[in-house]
Nucleic acid binder design. Structure first.
Lengths: 96, 96, 96, 96
DNA sequence: ATTGATCACACCTTGC
DNA sequence: GCAAGGTGTGATCAAT
């Protein structure tokens, strides 16, 4: 019973396999992370605190990224401004 | 100001960097998975069904693993029994 | 000191009591389960194997439920398709 | 092939069914609890806080039970003491 | 008694 | 904004 469904079936199969393959890899890495935490615990670290540190650093990184994005927006605006004499003067005065 | 905490600090730093590196990799893979779902959606697949299929297949795999574990446990128990003449007789009669 | 908060307070009290009553019942059942395991152990059963069997059976049930859910979703999707002449033709040809 | 294993099999079946029946009941109650939380949420309560309250009350109850147990131990000791004239005097004086 | 593993529960993020 | 899935945490149970 070959039909138009065959292509769909093959596509579907491919999609599912790609996802399952990726999830497998993801799981391997997640297991690695658990292992690192386990080792750290054996070495006397408090994993709960450790996790908090990681989370805090992630938040900081996000904030930095946010700030960088804002800065970039400013710079882009200044770039436009820089095309005018008035803008160029402002840029120079403010040290950009 | 070198002190007794320096080794700990270095260790801690190493641990955190290992974890952050792994989490970064994990995120990359998670993003890949999202991308595959997005592509599949564009190709006309219903991602809701897709996800259900994936989880169902995962469950199947887990169940098979579970059953294999039970079988192994059974066999280990039978192996112990098999070390005694009485046990061997029982095992044979019951078709194991 | 009757005030506007009184209704809320009464509601809150009722909610908390309902939950605590249910959790109490839940705990009683959990204790019953423990007791059954203890009895089984006394009767010579290996509780470890017992638990594995129970969980495997649970997984089977879950998987069946999951598959039923997928089937339902499929059928719903097909039901939508079936509302169009083109869809109906495809559905019939592919044996649904 | 009737054998000595048949009784075991029947017993095993009975045990498994009892446990599964109890776990089913437990799940029903757990679902009831979820439902109460859901209703509470609809009524405008913050379920997170609600859970904290429940937990805190549970802890208090445990503490009270603990204290009651200690009290009981004391009372038992006093009961023994009460069998002696000296003990009885102490009990009376301290208001037990 | 303690420790390690297993499991249910609660929280939180993500997709819809 | 809600529903769902993944993740972290706490409790429970076996083994030493």
């Amino acid at each position: 019973m070959p039909g138009i469904g065959d292509n769909l079936k093959a596509e579907l199969k491919a999609v599912i396999e790609r996802i399952e393959r990726l999830e497998e890899q993801k799981k391997l890495i997640a297991d690695d992370i658990k292992e690192v935490y386990a080792e750290a615990k054996s070495a006397g670290f408090d994993t709960k605190i450790l996790r908090k540190v990681i989370t805090a650093r992630k938040k900081s990184a996000e904030e930095r990224a946010e700030e960088a994005a804002i800065l970039e927006t400013y710079l882009a605006a200044l770039g436009d401004l820089a095309d005018t004499p008035l803008g160029r003067a402002a840029v120079e005065r403010d040290g950009f």
